[in-house]
């Protein structure tokens, strides 16, 4: 593919209760095959998508949270989490799953994919994109 664009997936909704988060992840997985410059952002209730220790057994729903950890293998390595959204929900980065990728340029060293960003910084990241898909 000649063109490489910056794709941002904006995740704003809680992981379970509606299907937005799961179907967003399906787009990310398919999109990975197109070798674009991909970023994910988590804000509003979307920050709950990355919570550690999710258990959907009682709700009878699919627990797809582990899939986020595999995204590094698909070259999806930029997870921007909005600091204010976490704080407004009484969360810190310690409540989130550790998500890493292997850096092939540094002997496959494990590096964190999650980056905490402020609201203004996230606005600048959004403005810098070619394609923003909001879910």
């Amino acid at each position: 593919m000649a063109q490489k664009k910056k794709f941002l997936y904006l995740n704003r909704k809680a992981p379970h209760g509606t299907i937005y988060a799961l179907e967003s992840l399906e787009v990310v997985l398919i999109g990975a095959a197109f070798e674009q410059d991909v970023s994910l952002a988590f804000l509003d209730d979307g920050v709950f998508q990355l919570m550690a220790g999710q258990d959907t057994t009682a709700a009878g729903m699919k627990n797809f949270s582990r899939t986020f950890k595999a995204l590094g293998d698909y070259d999806v390595r930029k997870f921007y989490v909005e600091r204010e959204s976490l704080a407004e929900r009484g969360l810190t980065v310690e409540d989130l799953m550790p998500i890493t990728y292997e850096d092939e340029n540094e002997d496959y060293a494990e590096k964190p994919s999650i980056h905490l960003v402020g609201r203004a910084e996230l606005a600048a990241i959004i403005a810098d994109q070619d394609v923003v898909l909001s879910f």
Binding site: K5, I30, F34, L133, F135
Partner: peptide, 20 residues
């Protein structure tokens, strides 16, 4: 068709506009 059509549209179009 598949989700690839969504990504392809994003790549090919000048602007992608989401209604949701």
């Amino acid at each position: 068709s598949g989700l690839g059509q969504l990504i392809e549209a994003g790549i090919e179009a000048d602007r992608l506009v989401v209604f949701g």
